[in-house]
């Protein structure tokens, strides 16, 4: 089963911290967003393999935008 990780706030992508193909546990950070003058890690909700990353550092994401997919 795949899990889409989506942005929940308008933000700039500060850093992509997970690598494509990486095995993630629940709660592992995938990217770090910057919004409200804060650095907000976006975490994997369930565990799995990171099969796609839809953003790069510097991108601006809106609420609901796809960030990554975990399978």
């Amino acid at each position: 089963m795949s899990e889409d990780i989506r942005a929940e706030i308008v933000a700039q992508v500060r850093e992509v911290v997970a690598r494509l193909g990486q095995l993630l546990a629940e709660g592992d950070p995938v990217v770090i967003l910057e919004s409200m003058k804060m650095e907000i890690p976006v975490l994997a909700e369930g565990g799995g393999t990171l099969t796609s990353i839809a953003v790069r550092a510097g991108d601006v994401v809106k609420e609901g935008d796809l960030i990554a997919t975990v399978e």
């Binding site: 929940e8 919004s35 409200m36 804060m38 907000i40 975490l43």
Partner: peptide, 8 residues
């Protein structure tokens, strides 16, 4: 909760 939306 700062982890979600920076806690705003």
């Amino acid at each position: 909760n700062p982890l979600r939306k920076g806690g705003c």
